[in-house]
């Protein structure tokens, strides 16, 4: 045996004298690490499962939410809403009239340039009524409702109700539009509540908006 191997043997012997605690820990390491790994794996699997379920659940909610918020709304796709909301814009406006939140007004008294967004309507042969929309949220909803009305392909002549009521949306800057009309040249007025013939059915969004305004005033 050469000198190198003798020293190696000596080192081997010395390793047999290392601290008891180190020897014991090395033996225990297997047990601890095995349990640790097992627990770690279980934890990872459980966490992954929770994450998957959470993602699916959140995804489902998100898809539903986005579908609800982004999909074009029309009367035909208004699932279940009719039971809660008015079936037509005319009904919603009627609620507003009878609940007292709509202000009776005259053509001259409505200021179309005062910065306040309004829904204005008049039944055939009747008085003008107006609802002022306070707050950016309602104003945004009004804009969406009007845009939805423009995309509504169901026309009055398709069987929808003409309701014998004329409706205008005043944005407060002089521009006036009607949810009964397609957005095209000549159908968007300025500075006046223009005469028109209904072409399409207003969006359910607008009906809901009016319903919500009435409900808010009740609450």
């Amino acid at each position: 045996m050469n000198d190198r191997m003798k020293k190696a043997e000596y080192l081997f012997d010395e390793l047999g004298l290392i601290d008891d605690a180190i020897v014991a820990q090395a033996a225990e390491y297997n047990k601890h690490s095995s349990v640790g790994v097992s627990r770690f794996r279980k934890t990872v699997i459980a966490a992954a499962a929770v994450m998957v379920f959470a993602m699916v659940f959140t995804g489902t909610l998100l898809i539903g939410f986005l579908r609800d918020r982004l999909a074009p709304r029309d009367e035909g796709s208004d699932d279940g809403v009719s039971a809660v909301y008015s079936e037509s814009l005319s009904d919603a406006l009627y609620k507003a009239e009878t609940s007292g939140i709509a202000e009776e007004c005259t053509l001259e008294s409505v200021d179309l340039f005062d910065g306040t967004a309004r829904i204005i309507w008049r039944r055939e042969g009747g008085e003008y009524y107006a609802i002022s929309l306070a707050g950016a949220e309602k104003r945004a909803r009004l804009t969406r409702a009007v845009e939805a009305a423009y995309s509504n392909s169901e026309s009055v002549s398709d069987g929808g109700s003409s309701d014998e009521v004329s409706v205008w949306i005043s944005m407060g800057d002089g521009s006036v539009i009607s949810p009964y009309l397609k957005k095209s040249d000549g159908n968007v007025g300025y500075g006046e509540l223009f005469s028109y013939s209904p072409e399409i059915i207003p969006s359910s969004e607008l009906t809901k908006l009016v319903d919500d305004i009435v409900a808010d005033s009740d609450g």
């Binding site: 000596y10 080192l11 081997f12 010395e14 390793l15 047999g16 004298l17 290392i18 601290d19 180190i22 020897v23 820990q25 090395a26 033996a27 390491y29 297997n30 690490s33």
Partner: peptide
């Protein structure tokens, strides 16, 4: 001195390396 150095060296290793080394060269 050698035993002391070995103890010190082993304690300086992380647990996993120490366990592997001791299991191989002690056990």
């Amino acid at each position: 001195r050698l035993a002391e150095t070995l103890n010190s060296f082993l304690l300086g290793l992380d647990r996993k390396k120490r366990a592997i080394f001791v299991r191989r060269y002690f056990y």
